[in-house]
Design a binder for these strands. Structure first.
Lengths: 237, 237
DNA sequence: GTTTGTCAAGTGGTCAGACCAATTTCGGAT
DNA sequence: ATCCGAAATTGGTCTGACCACTTGACAAAC
């Protein structure tokens, strides 16, 4: 429909009223179309200003994938498994492609994690950030999106299971090992390090394989889905 | 905010007008909210009938992820790469978990593919179906969704590049090899077979990493990786 | 000349009412 | 009991209006 015209990022769309007139449809329909694009993260609307082609706006895409992937607590183990299949591969690719800046970025994140743990925190934020930064280092936008969505979903559940003493520091240690491999450009080593990380440090949260029914608690309904109300984004573009 | 009331699949929501009255907001806003839920695949609206909680509706979720993942021609190689990282793993998991029924299903699909090719077709539909069925055999809904989205995106581009003579039959052959491994419950073998399939049969479509395979229009290709190494890991699993 | 305050125009967000098309519901005719 | 058709209901769209906000231009003050 609207995609025909190839528009550059940041460019402003015609106003809803003008668009409605040009397309000979009501403004409601135009709004609905724009809204759908906005929910897809392709476009951002700003009251009083206009509607613009999204620059990269990773966040909205990620949350969109996350909400789609998150089918309730039942699928949490599926998410974990996908991560276990994907992230070691990502670590390997990242090890081969990471730039110096990205490596420093990762290093910085680990320092943060260290600091957080020293302050008595769980370090989950830095933990998530590490996985995200690692995915970014693959220079593969699709991977970044999927991994971000996965990490997003797992973020909350991790917050609780991270409480176990020793886990935080072990997580940091294996993160360091991964970074070391990335720094060395050792894809295979990075893969193994990530595998170890996921197997030893992370997985206990859910554990359950695919045999039994639900060892999952349905009270864990804490996903950050936006409900009926459209969220207002204070995007400072 | 609809989340509060736990609604069962298939249940009908209050009408837009009623909802608007109850929430003390305009019908437009209600519609917009419902639309956002519909785009997320959580709900389906039927004119004259009502709005219902989506049952499972894999399709809409998949197309949603696909649209989010599909950032234009620039990201096509990213999609390919993600597939290359993910599908061998999926094949391995599927080999370990596939039920007899699912194996027969896969076998059936290959028969279809054979038939399509004999009729002079490219067999892309059966091809996509195979990958989807394989993902389903993992019994992991998250994997199914992501793989489906990936296959969905690649479906069209594959349609064109599948024209090359010999490709279709080679695809079928390597599919057969994968199925054989799945049937044997050989996860590692399935992984390798899928890797071979993706490396030898599929990837040429886009190819153009940095050695210029030329089947891609030049203007589209300028955006991607500048000096990135192609991943060439023979995965010593 | 530069800065500041003010205001008009434009924009997306919302609301209200109306009509359309598809569907369901239900009463009456058979 | 079955069939048919009118009426009610529902989502989809259109129209017009108002609000909150942003922007940009213009005049006033420095």
């Amino acid at each position: 429909m609207i995609r025909e015209g190839v528009l550059k990022p940041g460019e402003r769309l015609p106003s809803e009223r003008l668009l409605a007139e040009q397309l000979q449809v009501g403004r409601s329909s135009v709004r609905e179309a724009i809204r759908s694009l906005e929910l897809r993260g392709l476009v951002v609307s700003k009251r009083g200003s206009g509607t613009f082609i999204a620059t990269d706006d990773l966040g909205s895409m990620v949350s969109l994938i996350a909400s789609t992937l998150d089918g309730g607590s039942e699928s949490l183990k599926d998410i974990f498994e996908m991560r276990h299949l994907l992230e070691p591969q990502i670590a390997a690719v990242a090890a081969q492609r990471a730039t110096q800046a990205e490596i420093e970025d990762l290093s910085e994140i680990l320092s943060d994690q260290d600091r957080q743990i020293s302050d008595g925190g769980s370090g989950v934020d830095a933990d998530t950030a590490f996985h995200f930064a690692l995915a970014s280092a693959t220079h593969n936008s699709a991977l970044v999106k999927v991994v971000s969505a996965v990490e997003d979903i797992l973020h909350q559940s991790r917050d609780q299971s991270m409480q176990a003493p020793g886990r935080a520091s072990r997580s940091l240690a294996s993160h360091r090992r991964i970074l070391q491999m990335v720094r060395a450009g050792d894809g295979d080593g990075a893969r193994r390090a990530m595998e170890h990380h996921l197997t030893v440090v992370e997985p206990a949260n859910i554990a359950a394989h695919h045999d039994g029914a639900g060892t999952v608690s349905e009270s864990q309904e804490t996903h950050g889905l936006h409900g009926l109300r459209p969220l207002e984004e204070t995007d400072g573009g």
